[in-house]
């Protein structure tokens, strides 16, 4: 299985490559990708350096152009596709049908992966993208159970890549507008969920409060673990009780499922977190490299080592991890 790691800048890309990533995915410095954050991502110069660094060491670079362009920005997405092709990257990661059509027509030789933002959760959807745009691979949303992943892999006309580790989206990617409902910006339109510009923190007599465009997302007392106010991860009140009504701030960690994923024929494991640090990607890539190699050598005897799990827990959001939808009872 291929290990696909995130890089939000050149030092992260080097750390990912040096720690064992087979492929690194990056984005350009604009809203053409789903991690459009200040200070993050690559311009043409750093992207060229990144491609050189990875290719010199026999690794691949994928470019995420995985938001949904509206007409006013269409040319920016075209330019991103052309620029990535000029850089000689190894694949484009695309969600939008218009962008897929453009890439397939103008750069047919450049492999296309369907982004997780393309929301393909069933075999008919995969067939659509394969037949229409010749996609080679699809990244599947974090909503499928392990049994559903296994079944999909049996029938899929393309390679499948699944998320292994990182922040957890509880909603089907590409189909979540909660952030734009609250702030006006969403992953689809702006490449951002719960953008930092909409976040306010305030100490009050009731506790520390986090707000998203004015809406109270959570309120913390002394000793509570404090988390970034992602729109779906606060404590809200439903029928008189106040709790994490949608999702708790936890991270996805599927390390223990590696043998089953390998057996199912999953070709790649994706690590989330282009917005995280050099240390994060180095540590996570190292653990997953060791785990994937260990699983490949001896799948039957594979067991997650405690030092792997501790290392991953130390960089997890909310410092807790979950199997997410892979684990049926979580659903």
């Amino acid at each position: 299985m291929e290990l696909v790691c995130p890089a939000g800048n050149y030092p992260m890309l080097k750390a990912a490559v040096d720690s064992g990533a087979d492929a690194v995915y990056i984005g350009f410095k604009d809203d053409t990708n789903a991690r459009h954050f200040a200070g993050l991502n690559f311009n043409d110069g750093t992207a060229a350096k990144a491609v050189r660094y990875a290719h010199d060491r026999g690794r691949k670079v994928f470019v995420a152009i995985n938001t949904y362009p509206q007409p006013a920005g269409w040319e920016r997405w075209q330019r991103a596709v052309d620029a990535a092709a000029d850089l000689g990257v190894d694949a484009l990661i695309i969600a939008d049908i218009g962008v897929l059509a453009y890439a397939a027509e103008h750069h047919p030789e450049l492999p296309r992966h369907l982004s997780v933002q393309g929301s393909a959760t069933n075999v008919e959807a995969l067939r659509f993208y394969q037949q229409q745009f010749g996609i080679r691979r699809a990244v599947i949303p974090r909503v499928l159970s392990l049994a559903q992943v296994q079944q999909l892999a049996q029938q899929a006309p393309v390679e499948l890549e699944v998320f292994g580790f990182g922040s957890l989206c509880v909603m089907v990617e590409g189909r979540c507008l909660l952030s734009s409902y609250a702030t006006g910006e969403s992953p689809n339109t702006s490449g951002a969920c719960s953008p930092a510009s909409a976040v306010r923190w305030e100490e009050t007599p009731q506790g520390l409060e986090s707000r998203l465009n004015g809406v109270l997302i959570d309120r913390y007392q002394e000793g509570d673990a404090v988390g970034y106010p992602v729109v779906c991860k606060g404590r809200f009140t439903v029928a008189g009780s106040t709790y994490h009504a949608i999702e708790e701030p936890t991270s996805l960690n599927t390390l223990e499922l590696l043998p089953q994923l390998q057996q199912a024929g999953i070709v790649a494991i994706k690590i989330e977190g282009r917005q995280r640090s050099v240390a994060y990607v180095g540590k996570v890539a190292q653990v997953w490299r060791d785990a994937i190699d260990s699983c490949a050598r001896n799948p039957a005897g594979f067991a997650p080592q405690s030092q792997w799990m501790e290392a991953l827990a130390s960089v997890s959001e909310g410092t807790q991890t979950t199997l997410g939808a892979y684990h049926r009872p979580w659903q």
Partner: peptide, 29 residues
Amino acid sequence: NDIGAVQLLSERKLPFVGGATLNIYNAQA
């Protein structure tokens, strides 16, 4: 309301309505 349904309908050469969750954000799509 899902691309999977588009695939099924187009295989059958049937016309269809594209729901909001098909994510049509531009004229090229």
